[in-house]
């Protein structure tokens, strides 16, 4: 499904880019110019990031100006084509993945963390369809097999073949 970004989102984006660019430019300006090392002033570390920050301010301002010029502020912020199910799936996917990568990995043995993640992911996203079809138990078994197989295969390949010490 194609979703076109709203004008309000573009306006917010423009403001964020201006703020980010200004922040980069200020930090670059305040960056050490290494005068105590007598470096050539044209090689100061803040030169290029400072120019990029300034460029980002200009581009962000252009985006905001274009959006305002196009009537973004005049229009009522009516949500167009809200896809609540899609949004929920995005949040659920992001949350499960981030939880796996930040909380499970490094705190549980890799094989266990991966088994839990793949099982929960598959079972959760299949739940509705499986329940409607009356194959919930089968779905859980499929999820468990997929999870165990993934954990075993990835552990084996990375640990024994690539000699990576897993987290």
């Amino acid at each position: 499904m194609e979703r076109s970004p709203s004008a309000q989102a573009d306006l917010r984006g423009g403001v964020i880019w201006i703020a980010l660019g200004a922040g980069i430019a200020v930090l670059s300006w305040r960056m050490d110019r290494l005068e105590h090392m007598h470096v050539n002033p044209y090689t100061v570390p803040g030169l290029v990031p400072g120019l990029l920050g300034a460029g980002l301010v200009v581009l962000g301002a252009l985006l905001a100006w274009r959006t305002i010029h196009g009537g973004a502020l005049a229009r009522v912020a009516a949500p167009v084509g809200v896809d609540r199910i899609g949004d929920f799936r995005v949040v659920a996917t992001g949350a499960l993945c981030i939880l796996y990568a930040t909380l499970l990995i490094g705190h549980l043995p890799f094989w266990l963390a991966t088994t839990i993640f793949v099982f929960v992911f598959t079972a959760a996203f299949d739940y509705k369809e499986r329940r409607t079809a009356g194959t919930l138990a089968r779905g859980l078994v499929v999820a468990l097999i997929a999870a165990a197989a993934t954990a075993a295969a990835v552990s084996l390949v990375f640990e024994d073949l690539f000699l990576v010490r897993l987290p």
């Binding site: 499960l96 992911f121 996203f125 997929a146 993934t150």
Partner: peptide, 10 residues
């Protein structure tokens, strides 16, 4: 639902 978690693990 099976492929994507595996892709993410990789």
């Amino acid at each position: 639902t099976v492929i994507m978690p595996i892709v993410f693990v990789l």
